[in-house]
Every structure is written in C-alpha cells, then in structure tokens.
Amino acid sequence: MNWVGLWTLTAREVGRFFSVYRQTVIPGLTSSILYILIFGFTLEKRISTIDGIPYTLFIIPGLIMMNTLTNASSNSASSMLQMKLLGQLPDLLQAPLSSFEISLAYIIGGMVRGTVNGILILLVGVGLSGMPVVDPVATIGFIMLVSWAFSSIGLLLGQLAETWDQLATMQNFFLTPLSFLGGIFYSIKMLPEWAQEASFFNPIYYMINGLRYTILGVADSEPNTSLIVAIFMTIGFTVAAILLMESGKKIKQ
C-alpha cells in the first residue's frame, strides 16, 4: 500500500475544494438558510406540524441530506472529469498508485466535502430554529456514510463522463429530482398511495428519512431499513467505482 501517495492525493482533493470554498461550501449554506427562512417559516403558518414536528424543523434534515449528497457526488465527479480534461490524470496513472488507492482518495475527498457541508447546515439549522438533535453521533455517522456512498457514485460518473454537459445531465435529471422526491419538504404519508409506493424505489427517500430519524426521532421509513440501504449503497458503489477504475474504461487506452 502506497500510504504517502494515498494521503497526498486525499489531501489534494480536500485542499482543492477548500481552496474554492465560495463555490463548494458557501452556496449550499446560503441556499439552505433561504429554504429554512422562506419555505420553513412562511409555510409553517399553513402546515404547522408533520408527525408532531414543527414544519421548519421537519425540512432541515432533508436540506442537510440534499446538500450532503449533492456536494459529495459533485466533488469526486467534477474533480475526476477536471483531471481528465486538464491532462492531469496521467500524473496519477503513471505513478505507483493502485486503482484502489486512487479511488479511495477521490471518495474520501468527496466524503469530507459532503460531511463538512452537512454539518455546517446542521449547525445553521440548530442556530436558526433551535432544533434539538436526538442523537448527534448517529447524525454525523449517517452523514458520513451517505457522503461516502454518493462520493462513490460521483467517482463512477466522473470516470464515465467525457464532457461537463454529460455530468450536468446526470446531476440535473437524476440526483436533484430524486432528492426533491425523496421527501425533503413533505412526509410521504401526504402523497397518494401510488406515489408513496413509488417513493420506496427512490434510495434518497431512505437517506433523508434515516437522517431525519437521527435528528428528530421520527421518520417515514424504518430506521434500520434506511441504515441497510445506506450501507448497501456505500459498499456497492465503492466496489463499482474501484472496479471501473481498475478496468481503465474511459481513462486508459
């Protein structure tokens, strides 16, 4: 194992997004504050509580999760595509680094960005609404787990994509709609039966509800089911991203 190489590439990945924090950290924070202020405090007058939880508090776990998974996936995806397009990837592929080490560094980079964003929005949520957190350790653990899973997805997409347009298509047409349909702003019990059943096929539904359970102690999905889905996604996409890297598809000739 090339530990120094792994550490170096991980440090580079983390340093990369921190060096442009105005693009990678601030926007999620700003949009979440706006969501809480506009959607939360205004809609709370019409939807007072869901499952006994004030509406503003109800949406915060969903906002945290949306930012967590968007940031985690876009970090590894955009970094990988950028490396390809800027001609930096040969520096890694010609170095004594294994596919496992390269993949791990990218995934950890995305995981850190997802977690940092998630925790910052959690703190903002607590600050703005006085939201109590039922189990802080489980909350942070779950944010890290989901960040890892979506960072792996990002790495897969980054390897497969050849243009920024392709990457944006995947983000805009899959991740964002699935996040909104996963129950950020509503409980699926408020939906017609067919829509409730459709939600069960949306993995992000389990992510949002898993986090909601760790923060508020209530959720639409079974907490164990959310955890199992998150663990399966993490393992499955990590293995897939490493195998794709090892195959060299789209990155080697």
């Binding site: 090339n2 590439l9 340093g15 990369r16 060096s19 800027l86 040969p90 520096d91 170095a95 004594p96």
Partner: peptide, 21 residues
C-alpha cells in the same frame, strides 16, 4: 502540458513527489 487551476507550482511538485511515496 498539464494544466491546474488550484495550486501553486511548489505545491504541485510536492503532490507529484507524494504520489511516488
């Protein structure tokens, strides 16, 4: 030529050395 938008030259060289352990 390699391009990079984020880091100064010396840091890029430290990264390159790091990849080689």
């Amino acid at each position: 030529f390699t391009q990079d938008w984020f880091f100064p030259l010396d840091k890029l060289l430290f990264f390159q050395a790091g990849y080689y352990g």
